[in-house]
Design a protein around this nucleic acid. Sequence first.
DNA 1: AAGTGGTCTAGACCACTAT
DNA 2: TAGTGGTCTAGACCACTTT
Lengths: 257, 257
Amino acid sequence: MDMQKAAGSGESEGIDRTAFEPVYAQLVNILRRQVASGFLRPGDQLPSEAQLCRRYGISPMTVRRAINILVDQGIVVAEQGRGTFIRPVELGTASFQLQRLQELFEDDPRNTVRLLQARIMAADERTAAKLQVAPGQRVIYIRRLILACDEPTLCHVEYVVYDPARPVVEAEMDVTALRGLFGGAGATMLKHGDLSVEATLLTEEEAALLQASRPAAAFRIEHLFFDFDDRPVSWGWFICRSDRLRFTSRLGLRGAE
Amino acid sequence: MDMQKAAGSGESEGIDRTAFEPVYAQLVNILRRQVASGFLRPGDQLPSEAQLCRRYGISPMTVRRAINILVDQGIVVAEQGRGTFIRPVELGTASFQLQRLQELFEDDPRNTVRLLQARIMAADERTAAKLQVAPGQRVIYIRRLILACDEPTLCHVEYVVYDPARPVVEAEMDVTALRGLFGGAGATMLKHGDLSVEATLLTEEEAALLQASRPAAAFRIEHLFFDFDDRPVSWGWFICRSDRLRFTSRLGLRGAE
DNA sequence: AAGTGGTCTAGACCACTAT
DNA sequence: TAGTGGTCTAGACCACTTT
């Protein structure tokens, strides 16, 4: 028999046409398993599309769809006229999401937002530049403390353009749950935003709020959001203790995937 | 005429069948422009696939392909039986790449790697646990300083399993350019890896190497790489001054895109 | 019942790379 | 010239949601 070879999820898997899983997804997973098991290794050439059509009894478009997905996932690279090859792992392809941060604003009674301060003030130089308004123009200044699982986790400082004509403002003012900005109804007022992450030292005040002893390192996540006229609406930043939020990523495919 | 409406990149663009750009990509860009210009806004419904087929004179599979790309890009969400809708911007979907970090290892004469130390030692508790070897077993300890544009930018500490049977080891020892690990030939020896990023304080030694005054905050990028038997091969971390490496990301589509 | 997205077929033609 | 990936067609059938 030829069954020995199939043990390490080699190449003799087939398509199950009665399965709920679509054919293209099954092929994606077959090939992913072959990579994860080491049967296919970086630099190896995938069988040609025609071969895959014959071997699995599926049409060319379906094979292409599967391969395109593998390309999108960064597992494989296709070169016209040459073939499709397994990509080696590369540090630069790692990506980190802010998923965890957003989860702090989910509907959990242990996740709460305390409004520390909210007032109208004159924009200083830096704020005016970021929000593209004249220095001295009125802006809304908001400070919040976010508790996750009842533990102080995040500080948030935000400057919002004050313009009674914009409904964004009123939405901002009364929001203690921040959902106005992120994911909730308020997000439909924002067209795009820029984000940056850096490492920073906690200020005395931040350390007090976050119950940390100084000196301590923290993430600083800065945001600048724009409305549908591409005008800045909101500028601010989160300060987050590093031990309460970590960014992780995986490169390549683990064996037991 | 109906040309007024087209000014803000509204809806009266067409497909150019003589263009080099594939039809599906043209449709992707038409729809992206409609979102970027504010013609389509979060929550709005896209024309149905059948309508898009008729309006642009293309076949259903081509329309589907374009829409699938927009789904992958997170611009749009498709709901079976209901329609396809513009997604509001969400903080959690932001993603940050390590591209910049990898660029420090590109072939630029001003980017250099100094090998500070490389010796064989007995693994301590923590290292043994990470590398899944017995405490006291021999490991290779490597320290490097990476200069970008002739400025000290990164510290790197790495522990590599010492096993003469593995060619990875010899490759590691002589590498002062780190390309063995990232992107170069050595990467083909690694099947997958785990990464995490946190904020940390510079130690006295790190501060000296990076020419920073303490206290100072820095990124700590930890990595753990595995071979094709899913056994750990290399554990270590980069320490990077935050002012020399920043992670940025964009949410949604800017108007001038 | 009508309209939506989701999958899949069985080809066609093209552009590119190798030999 | 043969083999590769890249694009595109004109349908078919299905699953789901809404009316």
